[in-house]
Amino acid sequence: MCGNEALAEAAIIAGCDAYFGYPITPQNEVPAYMARRMPQEGRVFVQSESELAAISMVFGASATGKRAMTSSSSPGISLMQEGISYLAGAELPAVVVNVMRGGPGLGNIAPSQADYFQATRGGGHGDYRTIVFGPSSVQELVDCMILAFDLADQYLMPVMVLADGILGQMMEPVVLEKKTSRELPAKDWALTGAKDRDQNIVRSLWLKEGALEAHNNKLQARYEQIQRDEVLCEQYEVDDAEIVVVAYGIAARIVRGAVTRARAEGIKVGWIRPITLWPFPTEEINKAADEFRIFLNVEMSSGQMVEDVKLAVAGKTPVAFHGRPGGGVPTVDEILDKIRQLTLRAKIPV
């Protein structure tokens, strides 16, 4: 089962009631899988006329209290930003998968991590955030999908799963099961027909003076809570490390290969791998920067997450960067070379 199919099956396990999507490479296995599986489960699959429509269909299903998702790749996700902003404003849960490809523009269909800014800064208009996962294996992709539906319902907001062409296409053994369940609030806001109760309204327009500011403050308070409670990251051999490599997603897998080899050469190197990209593991990185260590950020972009790493390090230690934009994939050797170079720098007393 490839990553795209695994994430689709994970959504079904998570209780996704409806999938809406529009074809785009490299995530076409998702709609194809859903077209077959959702009707088998008595659930909804619609191929929409555009990504604008797909995210609006998600909006509609979600407004009635159903679990809904869509998936796309970078150019399609740009079109979906309208609906994602409306979901955030209207406090509606949804799961959006971005199997990233090279950009800007039509770019190419090679794997990429160039949509980090778009995903972690909200992406569309207005002061909002989305929870963003950056899984680095097919198993983690599955686990993140299942968690994403719960988080969306808990915090009433869109949750994005950032994968890339490699993760979507690769196959790995995977266990498909829902491991944990959260206690979730009742959806008493859902549009189900005003039977024996007052009318429910789902809206993002707040015209009365001060009303939108109050609404934004409410959202921000929720985002603060998420930053406190929902950060996920993995650390490996950071304690004695002179160099700490930070990477997420498939880039982190390549980093792992390089770090393993560097350790074999006797270089003291470890890694920190954010699993949630927003909320970002700022505290964990800041703590690791208390000791003098050189941070190396590796991304399949010209440098996006590196800004968050620098903010987290807060000037305590240097942050180096190695990136490959436009669908370029860094090799283990490239990263290993970079680590070796930094070792020389680490030895210079400050």
Binding site: S56, M57, G60, A61, A63
Partner: peptide, 22 residues
């Protein structure tokens, strides 16, 4: 009645999401 306000031009897509699931 229960109502939603949606993005410019998208009501038929939103309606699709609602009717298909309900």
């Amino acid at each position: 009645v229960d109502m939603v306000e949606v993005a410019h031009g998208r009501p038929p897509a939103v309606a699709t999401g609602m009717k298909r699931t309900n």
